[in-house]
Amino acid sequence: MSVIEEGAKKSGVLWISLPGSRRPRLAWHTWHDGAIYVVTGGPEQRLPGLAEADRVRVTLRSKDNGSRLTEFDARVEVVDQSASPEAVAALAKDRLNAPDAATLTDRWARSATVVRLTPA
């Protein structure tokens, strides 16, 4: 298992350096099928410019002590939510405290963007 996969699986948060942003943004995520998935938009976490970016810089920190575990570039791809139900379900499962857990994926389909970050 690579350090990226291990770090992404062990921690539910990461930092993404977004285009035009002065400092990285904290985001929750899930690891699924060799990539990191995040959701942005609507009432979910705000990650402006992520869906339009080609690449971003991702930082994973150790869950144990908070130190930087690894940093890497990732290719950005907007996910067709209807064509990737397993990835969206995995992301929804890791969404803590959703007020509408039973209909969460329906809300995402209407108002949010799911993004796949593939280590480059």
Rank of each mutant, 00 (worst) to 15 (best):
E71C: 09
V58M: 03
V76K: 00
Q81F: 08
D94G: 14
V79P: 12
R61P: 00
D100L: 12
R55Q: 09
E52R: 13
A74N: 15
D94K: 15
D64M: 12
K93Q: 09
A98T: 10
S84Y: 07
E71L: 07
L96S: 14
S82D: 13
N65M: 01
L60C: 14
D94S: 05
P99H: 10
D54T: 06
G66Q: 03
D73Y: 00
A92Y: 10
R61S: 07
N97G: 05
S82R: 08
E52A: 14
S67M: 14
V78Q: 08
N97K: 13
D64C: 06
N97R: 12
R61N: 08
T105M: 07
N97S: 13
R75I: 08
E86N: 15
A89H: 09
P48I: 00
R61K: 10
R55N: 12
V76I: 00
T59I: 14
A98K: 02
R95H: 11
L60F: 09
D64V: 10
V88Q: 05
L69K: 10
E86T: 09
A53S: 15
R68A: 11
L91M: 13
A51H: 07
R75F: 10
E77V: 05
A90C: 10
L69D: 02
V79Q: 01
A83T: 04
V58D: 04
D73P: 00
V88K: 04
T59P: 05
E86Q: 10
V78R: 15
V76D: 01
A98C: 14
R61Y: 04
D94I: 06
P48D: 10
N65W: 06
A87P: 03
E52C: 01
A102Y: 05
G49I: 03
T70Y: 06
D73T: 03
A92S: 15
D73A: 07
S82H: 12
A92G: 15
R55L: 08
R75N: 13
A51G: 06
A53Q: 06
S67P: 00
A102Q: 05
Q81C: 02
R68N: 09
T59N: 05
L50I: 00
L96H: 15
A53I: 07
L69H: 07
D73C: 01
R68P: 02
L91V: 08
A92T: 15
L60E: 12
G49V: 04
V56E: 00
T59F: 09
P85W: 11
L96N: 12
V76Y: 02
